[in-house]
Design a protein around this nucleic acid. Structure first.
Lengths: 138, 138
DNA sequence: ACACTACATTAGAATCATTATAAATTATAA
DNA sequence: TTATAATTTATAATGATTCTAATGTAGTGT
């Protein structure tokens, strides 16, 4: 259980005012052992259950976008009606379980090295994202 | 310039009735040398310019979804407000040029083999998608 | 050729995630 | 404490996609 102070510092040091809504969302996202993959509606539901203070949907969107800009979160590319975010911001990839609509981390050991041989002059690589779609095996 | 007959056969052989709308869309998508990456609105614009018959938006959606189901098209995972499709249905991956908002094919030679070492019991791999985001070098 | 039926097309309405707006509230610095 | 700039909020607007139900059309059998 982390102290609020940790989050207040985290926010302040990246130029975000530590409001109670932001701290509440930090606690939910970052005060946990495992990676958290979530959509805005997941987050909304979790906030409603775990804290009795209601945070407006607009604030949830604003906060998550601010957190993404500050590098607290990674956005994950899935073709889905919803956008997914990941509290694990390190270089890594994902399974997407199409039956459960759940993301699963693939860490370095789970995936061979990816070698990109094509070079485009004047361009640089910003990120490499691998998504492995899986389904129930029949 | 391909003959309509080619498309009529293509459609019929996969169980789709060769209607004039479907043939028109086939001509636009598949009567070209290079891969075509497009969104529904791209397609809509192209249809409006290149053919004088108007095809309703609902039909464009229906047709593209049917074509995807029949394997004529691949859907591409980018985080975007729009869904993108690709006339190249072979196993391949993409650059996404974030400056130009354009997709570029990566063919087999452009990318080393991707090895997935993690196995989840009861699950099978449906697809592997690699997206390499690039920006202007500077 | 005719009629039948299942499949397709269509305009417009509905849906739903996300973004914008503008008024009220709050954090911070002076 | 006060000023001001950032933040939160309810609500409206947006826009891609899906749904609906009426009309049209292709293919089959007669």
């Amino acid at each position: 259980m982390k102290n609020n102070h940790v989050f207040i510092e985290k926010l302040r040091s990246s130029g975000l005012r530590p409001t109670k809504q932001r701290i509440e969302i930090c606690k939910l996202l970052f005060d946990r052992k495992d990676t958290f993959h979530f959509s805005i509606s997941d987050l909304e539901n979790n906030l409603e259950n775990l804290s009795n203070k209601k945070i407006s949907l607009a604030t949830i969107y604003n906060t998550i976008h601010a957190f993404r800009e500050k590098g607290y979160l990674k956005e994950i590319s899935i073709n889905s009606d919803k956008t997914y975010f990941d509290t694990n911001t390190s270089d890594h990839h994902h399974f997407f379980d199409e039956s459960k609509k759940k993301l699963i981390d693939l860490n370095d050991n789970d995936l061979g090295k990816i070698k990109i041989k094509k070079i485009l002059p004047g361009k640089k690589i910003k990120s490499v994202e691998v998504l492995v779609r899986i389904t129930n095996d029949k």
